[in-house]
Every structure is written in C-alpha cells, then in structure tokens.
C-alpha cells in the first residue's frame, strides 16, 4: 500500500506552516519599516503573532447567524485554496502543492471567493451600514481583477498554457527569459493591479481604520478576527509568490523564493507609504485607465 498521498499532505501542511510564519513576520517587518519612515520605532517584529494569539484567546464571542460564522471561514478557505494550487518551488517534488494543468484559472477564482464569502458574512452582521463597505469592496476588487485577468490571458497566449508550473518552466534560463522581459506590458498591468490586491494605502479605503465603522470587518471580533488575520498572513505572501511565478521567473529554492517574494511584497508597501488613500470613486476609474489599457495592449502586442 502506498502512502505517497499522506507524505504529500504532510509536505503541503509544512509549506502552509512556513508561508503562514513568513507572512506574519513580513507584516511585522512592514509595520516596522513604515514606522521608521514616520520616525517612530514601531511595533515589535513579532507583534502580529501576539495579536493573533490574543484574538484567539478571547473568552466570549457574539454571533449574528450562520453566514456570520461562515464569512471568515470562506475567507480563510479562499486563502488556503490559493495556496493549495500554487507551486512554491519550481522543480521541487514536495513543494509543488496540488498544482495541475489549469491551476491559474482556479487561483483566479479563489482570489475572488474569499471576498464573496466575506460579503455574505458581513451582510448578516448587526451593522446597518456594512453593505456600503461590501459594495465598495466588491466593486473595487472587480476592477482590480480586470487588468490582472487581462495580463493572465496575455500570458496564456504567450505560453499556450494555463499551468503555473509550465509558465515558470518557460521562464527558466536567466533574467532575459522572465516574463518581465518577454512581456513587459502584461507585467506592468499585473503589478499595478497587484497594488490593489494587497490592500495597501492608495486602495485600502475598504479596510482603513478611519473608514472601518462602515467596513465589512467592523463586526468581526475575537476568534472571527483571528481567522481573518490568519488568512491575511497566508494570502499576502501567496499572492506575492503568484507574481513571482508568473512574471519573475519563479524560484528553484526557498532562499530565492523568499528574496523575490519579499521584494514583490514591498512594492505595494512602498507605494502605500508614499501615496495617500484614494476614495472608491477615484480608485475604480484609476484601475480602468492605465492598468486596463496596458492589459489590453499586452494581449494585442504579444
């Protein structure tokens, strides 16, 4: 009897554990760096861990119904779903997760899945205005996905495949083979939409503390919030790894994966520190202008 599937699950969980810790540390480092820019010392690097433990250790919860429970669960399964189908290390038998020939389409679906679950959950919360936050969030995320999807279509035309592993394989052999060099327009469109995907400053009006009284996470507390934080710690680095895989030649070992995804991860952080927050009626047209046009051009000029 073969136990390969068991070993496979073990390695997937190990990868998930590594990515979760990587994400938590990365958010700590981000807050530290943005504090230094503001001439502060900032939080401890391991503060996200403490916050997570504290939120899991609250003794009471208030629920508003079944969907309210399921909202964070959907969000987390969206994040873990993206992780499950993402090949982390190219050529590695163990850290390719459940990557298969059409994984890119599935990942695009999972990116949106969490948002929808969250919308349903927050809609059932006791907050009368949460639907404003939801409609803002969903409409903004739709326009964020648009340039990214166009870039993905451009990649599919370029490489004749929807498999992330094949796309990474086609980019091997030096920096000149990266999509960044072979298809700069698609890279630009995707990196601009990546700014919105990470939910940093110019595009974070939905979850911004000042706007939080009408944002979807307002009612989420204690364990619910901890589940959302866990998802954020997984989804953030996984989205960065997706960008590394699609546009920056992937990674053949953990060191290059962490260096590349770290740099990609910091692109929205630096933009976020420099630029102030957009309102939703500013951010949606922004995505429909330059990134959208770049995405269209990427398809036609490939």
């Amino acid at each position: 009897m073969s136990f390969d599937w068991l070993i496979k699950i073990g390695y997937v969980l190990l990868g998930l554990f590594i990515v979760l810790n990587y994400g938590l540390l990365q958010y700590g480092v981000i807050r530290r760096i943005s504090a230094r820019i503001g001439k502060r010392i900032g939080v401890k690097v391991y503060q996200p861990y403490i916050d997570l433990i504290k939120n899991y250790s609250f003794r009471s919860q208030i629920t508003h119904g079944v969907m309210f429970y399921l909202g964070p669960v959907f969000r987390l399964s969206g994040g873990v779903g993206v992780f499950l189908f993402m090949p982390l290390i190219f050529g590695s038998e163990h850290f390719s997760n459940y990557s298969f020939s059409g994984d890119l389409i599935l990942i695009l679906y999972f990116l949106f899945f969490g948002m929808l679950g969250m919308a349903l959950g927050a809609g059932e919360g006791g907050h009368p205005y949460s639907f404003i936050g939801i409609s803002r969030g969903l409409s903004q995320f739709t326009t964020i996905e648009l340039p990214f999807t166009l870039a993905v279509i451009s990649l599919a035309i370029q490489y004749h495949t929807f498999s992330i592993t094949d796309i990474v394989a086609a980019q091997q052999g030096g920096i000149m083979h990266w999509t960044l060099m072979t298809n700069p327009l698609a890279t630009a469109a995707a990196m601009l939409s990546f700014l919105g995907m990470m939910g940093n400053s110019p595009f974070n009006v939905v979850i911004a503390p000042q706007e939080n009284p009408i944002g979807p996470p307002t009612e989420y507390h204690s364990t619910f919030l901890a589940v959302l934080q866990t998802n954020r710690a997984i989804l953030g680095p996984v989205e960065a790894i997706l960008m590394v895989n699609l546009f920056f030649g992937g990674a053949t070992n953990w060191v290059s994966l962490i260096i590349k995804s770290f740099l990609v991860f910091f692109w929205p952080v630096f933009v976020g520190i420099v630029f102030p927050r957009f309102r939703v009626d500013q951010s949606i047209p922004w995505f429909l202008k330059l990134p959208f046009v770049l995405g269209i051009l990427a398809i036609f000029l490939i």
Binding site: I41, V43, K44, I50, P213
Partner: peptide, 9 residues
C-alpha cells in the same frame, strides 16, 4: 506602538 498599544476604531 513599541509597547504593543494600538488604536482600534
């Protein structure tokens, strides 16, 4: 923030 104090809305 150094001491783990953060504001929540």
């Amino acid at each position: 923030y150094r001491f783990g104090v953060q504001m929540r809305p």
